[in-house]
Amino acid sequence: MTLRSPILAVTALATLAPLAAAADVNIYSYRQPELIQPLLDAFTEETGIGTNVAFLNKGMVERLSAEGDRSPADLILTTDISRLSEAVEAGVTQPVQSDVLNTAIPAAFRDPGNQWFGLTTRARIVYAAKDRVDPAAVTTYEDLADPRWQGRICTRSGTHSYTLALVAAMIHHHGEAATKDWLDGVKANLARKPQGNDRAQVKAIWSGECDISLGNTYYMGQMLSDDEQKAWADSVNVLFPEFEDGGTHVNVSGIAMTSAAPNREEAVRLMEFLVSEEAQEIYAEVNYEYPVVPGTAPSDLVAGWGSFTPDDVNLMDLAELRGAALRLVEEVDFDG
């Protein structure tokens, strides 16, 4: 396959030849190639700077650690605060001082130490059966532990990063004891053992196995664009619960500069381009996500799902609670 920006499908710690000449920006990405290629093409067209992407399924931090100062990668692209914070903790990123980034991105969606920066946001919402659930019935995450939902909830594993981020946010708002009680309540309301991905939960609603599930917003867009899965998406409403003393839980896709970064100047230019109005609109359209820069409109499809007020806790604060979240999930045997 020949592309303007070559995409190299690689696995963790595989041997990779130097990705490009010094003028190009080299990227390790957990994001699927088709989700970022339109952005990189627009960047190259505007700046003349080439880009090269190595798509990894796993092992990004291990790879960067093994490569050390010899790494050809300038930037990493990934989803979820846990993966971003893991890279920071492993020492494979470096801070970037940029007035453009700090002005464009709200403080809650960037690292206080300037190690990573959010590019898009996604809300952790409730999918609810159109024919069996009143849209006004779920207004808070706390509601999910109410016994009226007994046998009616589907969700993915409690140890998945998306679930742990939500549990960490619950700890932030209510403390560990109350969060453990909440987890016990949600577990008691499950229709089946936690399993599958977010789309599998919506399929379970469509088939009548459960009535509500947790999921990320962008999966609705992905399902609507799939011939088989469109029926699943059409069977549910998108609801935006909030914490009782906060807003709707959100997570991010983000970017960080590697500690080695051989092409730092060009990499900063790409980072700053990605928060421009043009790039934010492209990113949000292709990914069915919400732009991270305030004032940038989401796509018409995404806007049609409704608006919400994001929880304003800094995501790094949630990352620090991830260990506690995992411990509570294991204590209640959530997946058992």
Rank of each mutant, 00 (worst) to 15 (best):
D245A: 15
F240Y: 14
E244T: 13
E265S: 14
W232P: 00
K230L: 00
T248W: 03
F240G: 05
M257Q: 13
D245V: 12
L270G: 03
V238G: 00
G254M: 10
N251M: 13
A256S: 13
S225F: 01
N263D: 09
S259E: 13
A260L: 08
V250G: 01
R269P: 08
M271Q: 08
E266P: 09
D227L: 03
A260Y: 08
L224I: 01
T258A: 09
D245H: 15
K230M: 01
V236S: 00
A231N: 03
S259W: 02
V268A: 10
D226N: 15
A231D: 11
V250S: 08
N237P: 00
M271L: 12
D234P: 00
F243R: 01
E265F: 01
S253V: 13
V268Y: 07
R264D: 03
A231K: 07
A267K: 06
D226G: 04
K230P: 00
V236G: 01
M257A: 15
A261M: 11
R264F: 11
R264E: 10
V236H: 01
G246L: 07
P262D: 11
A261F: 08
V250H: 12
S253F: 09
M257Y: 09
D227W: 02
A261G: 11
E266I: 00
W232V: 04
V252F: 12
D226F: 04
D234F: 00
V250W: 08
S253W: 11
W232D: 11
D226L: 05
E242H: 14
V236A: 02
L270C: 04
L224G: 08
L239H: 06
V252K: 06
E265Y: 03
L239V: 05
A267P: 08
L239F: 09
A260G: 10
A233K: 03
R264P: 01
L224W: 10
R269Y: 06
T258H: 05
P262I: 11
M257R: 12
M271C: 12
S253G: 15
N237C: 00
P241L: 11
E242W: 00
I255H: 02
E265D: 15
S225P: 00
N263S: 15
A261Q: 09
I255M: 14
F240A: 05
E244N: 11
S253A: 14
